[in-house]
């Protein structure tokens, strides 16, 4: 049995409080907010729309472009405005996390732009961003096979836990009088219906068995998340 205790008292398979809402950016064709605790993302979708310049157009399918960025004041130490190597990479993996569910061949030569902005960050922001973007794409009426859900699974100390925080990401244990990092971050995006992963990253150190355990927990958690996403979309009715 694992002995690690989560600082906020959560069970290993418990996420922080999740909030989800669609229609948060009026001007966009679709939009949504998604948060894990205080990690909060908003996403806006524009398109499918005309793509310029013409040489970017693909006659076989619609281009999907995702842009991820953080508010400078979403983190403790101010983040300079504008893209960084980190945000460029996250934008790229977010695009491939979302594209498998979209019917992009329905709009040849066009483009769908997805803008994800992190309002406040306490780890798992790329996952909150993917969840918000998936909702925003559905809200924009884009044909898709299912919603994509994402969560960061961690191996913290000796436990596999769901939806890790910044504090857990920085978890250290004492060994031979030295502090060593004992946290592994494994963000993943799951297509629950197809039972496939469309995003998988890992920073840290795990065995193959631990990774399998992490993916199992990821799948289980994403099943819960997708229900919350569905409810958020169904709520449009009450407005």
């Amino acid at each position: 049995m694992a002995t690690y205790k989560r600082p906020d008292g959560r069970e290993y398979d418990e996420t922080r409080k999740i909030e989800a809402k669609v229609g948060v950016v009026k001007r966009a064709d679709g939009s949504a907010m998604f948060s894990f605790g205080s990690s909060r993302a908003i996403a806006a979708v524009y398109g499918p729309r005309q793509l310029h310049p013409q040489h970017l157009q693909n006659p076989e399918k619609c281009l999907l472009r995702c842009y991820y960025d953080m508010l400078p004041f979403s983190v403790a130490e101010r983040k300079r405005p504008g893209p960084s190597r980190r945000s460029t990479e996250i934008s790229y993996v977010t695009t491939s996390a979302l594209s498998p569910v979209l019917k992009l061949e329905a709009f040849p030569n066009a483009v769908i732009d997805v803008y994800i902005l992190i309002i406040e960050a306490d780890a798992s922001t790329r996952c909150a961003g993917i969840n918000a973007a998936s909702l925003a794409l559905a809200h924009a009426g884009v044909p898709m096979t299912e919603l994509v859900s994402a969560v960061s699974i961690g191996k913290i100390g000796d436990a596999i836990v769901a939806d890790i925080t910044k504090e857990e990401e920085d978890y250290k244990i004492k060994k031979d009088g030295k502090e060593i990092k004992a946290a592994t971050d494994i963000p993943m995006a799951i297509l629950s219906r197809a039972n496939k992963l469309s995003l998988l990253q890992l920073d840290g150190k795990v065995t193959l068995d631990e990774l399998k355990e992490a993916i199992a927990l990821g799948k289980k958690t994403c099943k819960k998340i997708v229900e919350i996403q569905k409810q958020a979309l169904k709520k449009v009715k009450e407005e």
């Binding site: 809200h139 924009a140 009426g141 898709m144 096979t145 219906r193």
Partner: peptide, 24 residues
């Protein structure tokens, strides 16, 4: 039969469809 987009469920005789609620 699975919804391929977000919208309103509609059934006429045997045909089920999803009427768009949003989008360009």
């Amino acid at each position: 039969i699975v919804a391929a987009r977000f919208g309103l469920f509609e059934k006429t005789d045997k045909i089920v469809k999803v009427i768009p609620l949003s989008g360009v």
